[in-house]
């Protein structure tokens, strides 16, 4: 009888120990899950969380169009580097995409290549204001900028980003999927003749699906 009691007590203790172990392990795991995490991502690595536009798409658009512009015949045939002014990229999508981010990156890569010269359109008003200040008598004459020496652009760089979104028609299903097609057109217009002397496009199509039923 005593032996049986001891065995039962031991079993009880063992169950209690196991329970404690499981509770502690569970709590530790829950705490780990609650911890905030941070990690650095490679900006060039392709990552998509849904079908919509993201930074990987921007990178792809910038790379393709910059390469195409660098392969264009502008710099190799001309005696001097073409002077370009950017007139922006129209956003004709259903997302609030900052298209100036695309044009800024293309400009950066082209400037780095040394094949193109760019006129800063965004700073025109500030340049004029600063020049007015210099000629208002506050700045010594020998330190003033020379007026009438600004560059005249040879080309306008402009473009349009468009998207077409299609959802799966209504039917009995467990997932709903959507397809998004992005097209980014960029073109170079000769300011003297009005001729489009270069144009290229990047197309991205992506399908994403998500469950219709969830918690």
């Amino acid at each position: 009888m005593k032996i049986r009691m001891t065995i039962l007590q031991m079993q009880k203790k063992s169950i209690q120990c196991s329970l404690r172990f499981f509770i502690l392990t569970g709590m530790a795991l829950a705490l780990t899950a609650c911890a905030a995490t941070t990690r650095t991502l490679d900006p060039r690595a392709e990552q998509h969380f849904d079908a919509s536009y993201d930074f990987s798409d921007k990178q792809q658009i910038v790379d393709v169009l910059t390469e195409s512009l660098l392969n264009a015949a502008y710099s190799s045939n001309a005696t001097e580097k073409p002077k370009v002014i950017i007139y922006g990229i129209d956003n004709e999508t259903t997302e609030h995409i900052s298209t100036s981010g695309i044009s800024d990156d293309i400009r950066l890569q082209l400037i780095r290549s040394g094949e193109y010269r760019f006129i800063n359109r965004e700073q025109r008003e500030n340049i004029a204001e600063e020049a007015d200040f210099q000629f208002a008598g506050f700045v010594a004459p020998e330190q003033r900028v020379n007026e009438g020496r600004q560059l005249g652009a040879d080309f306008i760089l402009s473009g349009t980003l468009r998207s077409i979104k299609k959802k799966e028609p209504r039917q009995i299903r467990l997932n709903k999927s959507e397809t998004i097609y992005y097209s980014m057109n960029l073109e170079m217009t000769d300011l003297e003749t009005g001729e489009i002397t270069w144009a290229d496009a990047v197309e991205i199509a992506r399908e994403a699906s998500r469950p219709i039923i969830g918690w």
Partner: peptide, 13 residues
């Protein structure tokens, strides 16, 4: 107006 056009396109949908 670019932002307004994006909203207009969402409304089209």
């Amino acid at each position: 107006p670019d932002g307004a056009a994006v909203e207009a396109r969402r409304a089209v949908n």
